[in-house]
Amino acid sequence: MKKKPTTVAFRGTKEQEEKLLAVIEKHKDEMGKMMPILQEAQEIYGYLPIEVQKIIARETGVSLEEIYGIISFYAQFKLNPDGEVAIAVCLGTACYVKGAGELIEAIEQELSITSGSTSADGKFSLEATRCIGACGLAPVLTVNGEVYGRLTKKDIPGILAKYKA
């Protein structure tokens, strides 16, 4: 899956940047330094927007494209922050055959965001996940960790309404 750039404004703080600089300082002379730097940067910021990539490029001398190449390659790296309301729709085999694709479409329509991204105000994020081990409830989704199962697309507006306030 290609990753989508975020539309959420960057809200990095001075403290976060100081932490990041310390991380880079710690790893900068190691072989294969970029993976631990990116992993720890994502722990600090929750995702890896262009602003963070630029700091890493500047401090390590590694080109911005090379950094982006790594981020876009590994599933573990995120270009979008989790929303205040983080929705994850299971696309494991059972959920998929039970119509999880329709759930995603319904959420995309309802919130005007696409799977793999976060609304510009940072409120909602939507991602498709691998099997979460609740196949008996298929199709299933979670909102901030709370599980909703045996859904049809008609259930979506009702679920989202709870979080829109």
């Binding site: 899956m1 590694v62 494209e65 190449g69 876009s72």
Partner: peptide
Amino acid sequence: IGVIGANNRGFD
């Protein structure tokens, strides 16, 4: 310089 590189993964 390194302004171009491989992005994404697999078929993408």
